[in-house]
Design a protein around this nucleic acid. Structure first.
Lengths: 326, 326
DNA sequence: TTGTACGCGTTATCAC
DNA sequence: GTGATAACGCGTACAA
């Protein structure tokens, strides 16, 4: 890899001139310009981003911290973040915390030490007081962080209410919610909204991990202990596990049991029957988070507001048709 | 963020001493050591990785280039790579090429310019002659690159053969393979293996994109033009789409049609009926690729060999039981 | 219009 | 044992 000095030598100018040509700053004669351009091409010169970062104190890197990349929700989010970042000339460093506080902490330290320009965080631990001490700009995505940190989520409370209303409207009257870990505020809201509308029709409210294997256990527990005809799962993976277990037990969906998920990931279309779900605008959420972050990075003061995007029901085949319910 | 100079000042020593303490190199008196440690703690000093990279010419970063992170196969791979990298003190930069040559090229340039220590590449374009000119160590994962580049794949040829044999053994005698883009050598092998064993039982061989939507189209095309009772899909996503379309058309699986996928991603367990598939050792592949890369980075000369891991059939419910077939 | 020289934060090589 | 000091490659005052 050649350096700016070699280019200067080949072009018979000084490094300053090369730099000026590269960054299109300051005056440089046409003759020098073409000589430099020529030399750059000849040597396949690309500026060393490390040295540049050191000087400029910006790295062009955005850290994206997710709890579990094998949960398909996060790749879709990551994809949106990456697209937007790429569009603005940033690169994304993706880190997996495994839901472990320790790993999250390590990654944040590490990313700060490598001078990322900003951080998008989709994990949170209520007992973590550190976010306020982080010097780089942060945006929280899908989860809510303490402190004055801009946040992007979907309206889970409304989503929960819509799910309950939808099930009731379609003839289910014994409702269950399989929530995720309720220590996550965004998750708790989904359950709260659901329970409020479900009212006296609520049969049970249980918790499940987000990963498929754990959700299978939760679903088995549910069917062992309760009977119901309408289930709201806190995410689509849990819904898929629920459907899987129902199928094993010979419970007909949607005839005997209606299921509605949350997220709107592609998985919902892949399973049979295709999943009715409360869809978050995942791509927009990722884009918005990235956009907010980049604005902050580039100096615009943005309010530490909470952006709560609306969700909508996508009706597929794990719920009854309106005309079937009668 | 405080610098080494500030630490030196607080501890009343020179920066050299601080550096020695940090890196545990060279002699330093116990008294100086505790003073430095004390100062480091007090200032919450962490060395600037950018400056360190500039000097050492290593960044502690590994670039991982994938074609599509929303295809669940790649997150599982990424997860393995990341775990192994993390274990050795490296961080992973994940980049999405969208199967576009242009983006891949940009990312590689960019990653080189930021002095990543190595590259793991899971995309390839037969018309890309550039890999040989890249200066950092490279390992190819799941795809085969030209030039003397170590490669990790699964034995797709054997996988294809196993799939055909399995279908034949379970009573299917009109076989179809829905392959992925055949310009990818690893994909082509799966098809070749299948076709060889299928022999005169092969009814059709069609191609499909890897993403779900495209695979739906391919499956519809298939059912419009051919009849068959055994399908081998080049990956699990295509298999899921095929099953979806079959369900829509009222084709009973596995009674009328048996389906076998390839990959062994978690999705296979999530769909109904659960998917019989040729499982790659995904996690091991990711680990191995990362391990090979790190070995090369750290100076060990490793042969540019092709590591081809074995695959195995995971029998689930999209194929008939042996005892049912009669 | 162009070149010299310095600083960014770190590590390594010398003298002391 | 320890402290100056010279790199690493880049960008930019400032002088020419």
């Amino acid at each position: 890899m050649s350096t700016i000095r070699e280019v200067a030598k080949v072009a018979n100018v000084s490094v300053a001139t090369v730099s000026r040509v590269m960054n299109e700053k300051g005056y440089v004669s046409e003759k020098a310009r073409v000589a430099v351009l020529q030399a750059i091409k000849q040597l396949d010169y690309r500026p060393n981003r490390v040295a540049r970062s050191l000087f400029q104190k910006r790295s062009g890197l955005i850290g994206l911290i997710v709890p579990d990349i094998t949960n398909p929700y996060f790749p879709q989010l990551a994809r949106a973040v990456e697209d937007m970042a790429h569009k603005h000339g940033y690169q994304v460093i993706l880190c997996n915390t495994d839901e472990q506080f320790q790993k999250e902490h390590e990654y944040i330290q590490s990313l700060e030490a490598m001078h990322v320009d900003g951080l998008i965080i989709t994990t949170n631990y209520s007992n973590n007081p550190n976010y306020e001490t982080i010097e780089v700009p942060i945006v929280a995505l899908d989860r809510v962080l303490q402190g004055a940190i801009p946040t992007v989520t979907s309206n889970g409370y409304d989503g929960g209410k819509k799910a309950a209303q939808f099930l009731l409207d379609h003839g289910a009257d014994e409702l269950v919610v399989i929530s995720g870990p309720s220590k996550l505020p965004t998750i708790k809201k989904r359950r709260d909204g659901f329970e409020e509308v479900a009212g006296k029709h609520l049969v049970a409210s249980i918790e499940s991990p987000f990963h498929f294997q754990g959700a299978l256990d939760a679903a088995n527990y549910l069917f062992d202990h309760y009977t119901c005809n309408g289930i709201f799962a806190a995410n689509d993976v849990i819904a898929a596990a629920t459907i899987q277990v129902a199928a094993e037990r010979g419970i007909a969906i949607p005839e005997q049991l209606q299921v509605i998920g949350y997220d709107g990931i592609e998985l919902g279309q892949m399973i049979s029957p295709p999943l009715t779900t409360i869809a978050q605008p995942i791509y927009q959420m990722g884009e918005l988070a990235a956009k907010l972050l980049i604005q902050r990075i580039e100096g615009k003061e943005i309010a530490a507001v909470h952006h709560e995007l609306t969700v909508e029901v996508i009706e597929r085949e794990t719920t009854k048709r309106k005309d079937e319910q009668i």
